[in-house]
Structures are given as C-alpha cells and as structure tokens.
C-alpha cells in the first residue's frame, strides 16, 4: 500500500495563544479554551497517515476539532504548527510550506472537498453544470463540448438529472446539492478527497444514497478519503479506520469495527453507548 498523506504534530490555535494553551486544555481538562489567554485550541499534536484508496473516518462531537483538520489540509485555514506531506506518484509536497499558487494548484488539480454546507462548495450564482465546468476549466480543459460532456457524465454518475444541469443549484433539494458538490469535487478525479459532514441534515434515505455513492466512487476510482462526521453510522459504513477526537486531541484510533465494538477510551465508550 502506498501512503498518500502523512500528517505530523498538527496544531491549530484560534487566538493569540500563550505558553499554557496546550497544557491547560484537552480532554482530561474537559475544555479546548485556554483559561489563561482565552485562545481556542482546535487541534493539538495530531498525526495521521492515509493510504491510497483508503477511507479514514474522523469522529467527534462539535468542538472536537475534526473539521478543522480537513480545513487545514485543504488550505481553508492555516495551521499553527505541524507538517503534512502529500505523496503524489513520484512527487511529494510539504503542504504547509507551499506558496499560495502552489496550494491553489493542489486544491484545483489534486484535492477535492465536499462541505456540509453546499454554499461553501458550490457557486450558487452559476448553473450546476457551470460549477463543474469551473473545475474542469481550472484544469485547462478548453473545449466547450468536452466540458459539457464531462459535466453530464459526472452528474449522471452522481444521479443528478442531467436535464437539470443548466439550473442553478439553489433550485435543488439539499441532497441534490450535495450530489452536485460531489460531482464537482470529483470532476478532476482527485486522488484525495475530504468530506466534511456531508450527510448531516439530510433525510435518512438521502443520507444512505449519498454514502452509497461515496463508497462506489472510492472503489471505482481508488480515491483516498478523509470523512469527518459526528455520526457513528457514517464511519461504520464508510471508514476502514477511524480516529476519535475530543477537544482537539486524538483520544483513540483503530479499525472502525474495533472502535465501535471494543472502544478503549472512556469517552469513546460513552459515545458508542449513547448512539442509537
């Protein structure tokens, strides 16, 4: 198996920070807010590996820092410290050492992100097809009919009615918007895809279809994914391995079925026990 992403000692503090931030926060102290300076320690000393074609789950409640992890990796936010290396065939990139243009290049050409809020991932001012076209145009595809064709294929793949591809995403249901977002993220066949609470707030039946789609895509394209969720059901169905976070720290990690059936940490035991 080939490694695609290696994250080491990632930390992210919102606020000015002080020497006590990491000492005075964390799951043991039951807070992520530094009592001395009021900064929020979203992530502290997080390390993880991701292999080609693997789905890694990051599970935690609100405030655990799980979304911050993918936002840092997708360059939506800048980490306070730490390293992340992206292995792309024979090339490797020190993600946090790249300049803005290099970051944008990776975002546009090698990474995909699907947000909980479709407004973050889609431009609601242009048609669904146009949203996908944008990503293809970023990849220097300059042939209108090819772009149309590819957009149609992607929407078909994600089960969006292609006769609606010229409509604005605002006309669509939440589940449909997520499908368009997934189609957009996949437009360039990214080897690495981040999914941030993609099924939260959707009807159960719609959730199931989206999860099914994600899994199919992973198997078809061997896409490596990090799936951020507070939903145990989502990791159970999607992730081979799972990381459990609380107040910015990893408190447990392992194979997903082991985490769910034999959780080691008191917090995870409580989380699993309280799930429906």
């Amino acid at each position: 198996m080939e490694k695609i992403l290696e994250v080491r000692n990632l930390s992210k503090v919102f606020g000015k920070g002080c020497p006590n931030c990491f000492i005075k926060t964390g799951p043991d102290l039951d807070t992520n807010i530094c009592p001395d300076c009021g900064s929020v320690v979203a992530i502290h000393d997080l390390s993880l590996d991701l292999y080609k074609g693997e789905i890694l789950g990051i599970m935690g409640e609100s405030g655990s820092g799980k979304s911050t992890v993918v936002k840092n990796l997708f360059f939506d936010q800048e980490p306070t410290s730490g390293r992340a290396t992206f292995f792309d065939d024979d090339k490797q990139y020190d993600l946090f050492g790249l300049n803005a243009a290099q970051k944008r290049h990776l975002r546009n050409h090698r990474f995909g992100m699907v947000y909980q809020n479709p407004h973050l991932g889609l431009n609601f001012g242009i048609s669904s097809g146009g949203n996908i076209a944008e990503r293809l145009l970023m990849n220097d595809l300059r042939n209108y009919s090819e772009i149309r064709e590819r957009a149609r294929e992607l929407l078909e793949r994600t089960e969006v009615l292609t006769n609606r591809m010229d409509e604005l995403p605002g006309n669509f249901s939440g589940g449909m918007q997520q499908r368009v977002q997934i189609a957009k993220a996949l437009a360039i066949n990214p080897p690495l895809l981040f999914l941030d609470e993609v099924t939260t707030g959707l009807d159960l039946s719609v959730q199931a279809k989206i999860l099914d789609l994600i899994l199919e895509i992973q198997q078809e394209m061997n896409t490596a994914m990090i799936v951020v969720t507070h939903d145990l059901g989502v990791v159970r169905l999607l992730a081979g391995r799972t990381i459990v976070m609380k107040y910015g720290r990893i408190i447990e990690s392992g194979l997903t079925d082991q985490i769910l059936e034999d959780p080691q940490h008191a917090y995870t035991q409580r989380l699993v026990a309280s799930a429906l």
């Binding site: 392992g254 194979l255 079925d257 082991q258 059936e261 034999d262 080691q264």
Partner: peptide, 9 residues
C-alpha cells in the same frame, strides 16, 4: 473470533 479479526483488541 473477534479478537483474531481485530474487531476486539
């Protein structure tokens, strides 16, 4: 069985 399969540690 689960211990062998790593469903249990």
């Amino acid at each position: 069985l689960k211990g062998i399969f790593r469903t249990y540690l």
